[in-house]
Amino acid sequence: MEHNPKLVSSEVAALWGAYMQNTMVNGILQHFNSVNEDAESTDLIQSAINNCDYVVKEVIRIFEKDNHAIPIGFTQEDVNLKAGRVYSDLFTLRYIKYMAAVGTAAAAAFLEVLARSDVREFFSTTSQLFMELYNNACELLLKKGAFIRSPTIPPMEKAEYLQSETFLSGLIGKYRPLTAIELAHISKNTETNSIGRTFVSGFSQVANSPEVRKFMERGTEIAAKHETVFREILIKDGVPLPSSWDSTISKSIDPPFSDKLMMFHTLSLNEVSVAGYGAAVGASVRKDLGGDYTRLVAEILQYGDDGVKLMIDNRWLEQPPQNVDREALRNRRV
């Protein structure tokens, strides 16, 4: 007997999220493509757009097959291709590298909760596409001498076991040196905040709504503060600071994106930060780092909550798929 299983909740969530993210990123990339002046980046930008198009078309195909409503997502109405440049071409490359890494990780993470073969095949292909895009972006950044590397540490002289619990908390008034994994997370989260700070700083300049501009200004301040926290940890540990990521922003005030798209993108970056901090807490054995991450997570969670309220007030936040409200159905019969 042929078995045709319907989509389960985890599959619907993965597909819906992929549609929202890729229609949003596609709009960003279209603007970058329209203002791009770097011939070496043309193929990479087009590849990124093609990836987004593939994801969107496949989600539509799977949803239509199961009679699921297609999300609204983001359309050409959310992008103004006549608007001038806001960000540099180098920032475009770093954005593609960053979002390709996020896309690869998200697609791979969802595989664990997918059962239907066509959905698993789709996310497997998606992960491969974005992994290839990530590697191509890395190669181009390396070629341009613009790849920002994590801090270096001396080679280990020998492998050995720990002999003291001071490894967890350090001596009084002093902490032990950072481990390689702790350094890796600090570097990654510094980059996340740098990307976010540059984006929301530009958003605050071009947004139409005064409320949105104010929200973006607050985001810029939070991201800058978090970058400073991470850099100070490196300084105290005597670790050479990595070069700053490019954050050049033009003087343009003509919005290339709708306020709705900019708000959604900011909240998406916020979610990535929360996930990154959570992973760092699990991997950071030094107790002071756990305290720092916990404090910073609380701040960005509050920022994200305020952003959701702002989007709801403006009717910009699309309702995600959810279970049936049985109580509401019962009340309708009263």
Rank of each mutant, 00 (worst) to 15 (best):
I186L: 01
H185Q: 13
I249M: 07
F123P: 13
M311A: 09
Q128F: 13
P210K: 13
Q319L: 13
K143E: 14
K225Y: 13
P321F: 06
D246M: 02
I235M: 01
E182V: 03
E211F: 09
E77M: 12
E160Q: 15
T228G: 09
S244A: 14
S164A: 02
L90W: 09
F91C: 03
E11C: 07
E191F: 09
L29F: 07
L111S: 04
L29K: 12
E232Y: 00
A137P: 02
L183Y: 00
M99P: 07
K82I: 03
N22E: 13
N136H: 11
L178W: 03
T220G: 10
V35W: 05
V79M: 08
S194Q: 07
T104R: 00
A105V: 11
M156A: 14
D325I: 10
T104S: 07
E157R: 05
A280R: 04
L129D: 08
I312L: 15
L15S: 09
D89C: 08
R116A: 07
M99K: 14
E139A: 15
S258F: 12
H3Q: 13
A283R: 09
Y161T: 12
N80M: 06
M216H: 08
P5H: 10
R330I: 12
L234T: 00
E318H: 12
V56P: 05
T23E: 08
C138F: 08
A280D: 04
